[in-house]
Write a protein that binds this DNA or RNA. Structure first.
Length: 466
DNA sequence: AGCACA
């Protein structure tokens, strides 16, 4: 289908299209009002409303081009302008030939809604209010709320997509009733799409998340106080619950950090199941999923504050995510699912049967070393001078990492030559000398044996986190 | 009041 001829129109009249662009619509103009306005001129086969930053534009697609022409012509010569609720509406041909609905992402109906609540702080709308509003359409199974750049958001889980669709159709673009909100809240518009989730993983009852199907779920004391995704301060100690999924914020990103680079870095501590990269507040963050909490804990302790590339570049800040099982595309530039067979080179033996979420919350140190061993057996077999297969003993992280993290040389990696992409970057297990190593795969292992600081500064200075 | 979606 030819949809967009992206060329600008050097004409006095636009090219006719059976799609009309309507602007200056009243706020929250409904599809019904659009139909009411346009129906006299022909059959409407599609609409798209609440378009634009102000949500006051819309597109209407007629079945036939002549119907669109008749509407434009009519109002071009009419003494009465087109109006919706008394507001003059400006109509012209769209520069596209058909309405493209975004059926690929947030419009594929599912049983979980992603709700963005605009214009409010997280504290303004309680989870009970959200529950009340969305319960009008059916039993709400679970709610998870969180804050991100888009604003205050909530995931609402219903039992089925039909119920979710009903709620979405009724509430998208509308507002939570004023009397349910604090006085100072002036506007509170809901923007609703479908989430790709089907079953939320609620770990605790808290002011941020609820599982209404499981009243015996424990109340999480630490979740009641806290902010969700902590940006770790210098002394950063948050009482966040442990998780098998790490949230990595990457600071000072002078070099591109790819999924592959992250996989190499984090695979040092065990099998990496999934990775997702995303933007947050202009910075880059990533979620790294391990099979269990113990492995994640080792990785977190080991890597926190350290840099992927030497010179203070791509400094990692790690915290525990609230996720336990990431929902990611199997293979693209932003995410990877290594548990899917035939993806990449890793064959993950435990993938099919392992209940990751459940296992994730039963820290099992032995499983950590078991998976780590598997991972190394598969992924780090390249022979090399320093090939010591680390057998992870969780007890050793106390001595090796916590006591002297800044002297741990293995955690600073060589920056890639400017002409090379970091995918081929050396991830050095030894400091300066081996930065130019010609066999990147041989550097897979970041050896847990901390060297004395003196030997670490042979050639280039290592970056020591403050 | 001036063109979405990925």
């Amino acid at each position: 289908m030819s949809s967009s001829s992206g060329q600008p129109q050097f004409r006095y009249t636009q090219t006719p299209s059976k799609v009309l662009h309507l602007r200056n619509l009243p706020w929250e103009c409904t599809e019904e009002e659009l139909v009411e306005l346009c129906n006299p001129f022909g059959k409407i086969i599609n609409t798209k409303s609440n378009v634009g930053a102000n949500r006051n534009q819309a597109f209407v697609e007629f079945a036939d081009l002549n119907q669109a022409i008749s509407m434009v012509s009519y109002y071009a010569s009419s003494s009465e302008p087109a109006q919706v609720r008394g507001k003059t509406v400006y109509i012209q041909y769209s520069n596209r030939q058909e309405i493209t609905n975004n059926k690929s992402s947030g419009d594929v109906a599912g049983n979980v809604l992603l709700v963005t609540i605009e214009g409010v702080e997280a504290g303004d709308v309680s989870i009970d209010v959200i529950h009340l509003v969305f319960s009008a359409f059916g039993f709400v199974h679970k709610i998870a709320t969180f804050e991100k750049a888009a604003g205050f958001q909530a995931l609402i889980q219903y039992s089925d997509a039909e119920t979710a669709s009903n709620a979405r159709n009724a509430l998208d673009g509308r507002s939570i009733p004023r009397y349910l909100l604090p006085e100072h809240v002036t506007s509170c518009h809901l923007r609703i799409s479908f989430s790709a989730h089907t079953d939320l993983n609620i770990k605790f009852q808290s002011h941020r998340s609820r599982d209404y199907t499981n009243p015996y779920l424990p109340v999480n004391p630490s979740a009641i106080e806290g902010t969700l995704q902590p940006t770790l301060g210098p002394d950063g100690r948050k009482k966040e619950p442990e998780s098998n999924v790490l949230l990595a914020s990457i600071e000072n990103m002078q070099y591109a950090v790819t999924v592959d680079v992250l996989h190499k870095v984090f695979s040092t501590f065990g099998t990496v199941q999934k990775i997702a990269i995303f933007e947050k507040n202009g910075g880059m963050q990533a979620l790294i999923q391990y099979p269990d909490v113990a492995t994640a804990a080792v990785a977190k302790e080991s890597l926190e504050g350290h840099c992927i590339y030497e010179g203070g570049y791509c400094k990692l800040h790690l915290s525990y995510s609230r996720h336990t099982d990431l929902n990611v595309k199997a293979h693209n530039d932003r995410s990877r699912d290594y548990t899917i067979p035939d993806t990449g080179m890793l064959t993950i033996p435990q993938a099919p049967g392992l209940p990751t979420a459940a296992a994730g919350w039963q820290a099992n140190p032995q499983s950590a070393s078991m998976y780590a061993g598997n991972d190394y057996a598969v992924g780090a077999q390249a022979p090399g001078p320093n090939r010591q297969m680390p057998t992870w003993d969780p007890s050793m992280r106390g001595g090796a990492y916590v006591a002297a993290p800044s002297t741990y040389p293995g955690q600073t990696f060589a920056p890639p030559p400017v002409s090379h992409y970091p995918a081929s970057a050396a991830i050095s297990s030894a400091p300066a000398e081996s930065l130019q190593a010609s066999q990147p795969m041989a550097q897979y292992g970041m050896l847990p044996n901390a060297r004395p600081p003196t030997s670490a500064s042979a050639g280039q200075p290592l970056y020591y986190p403050s």
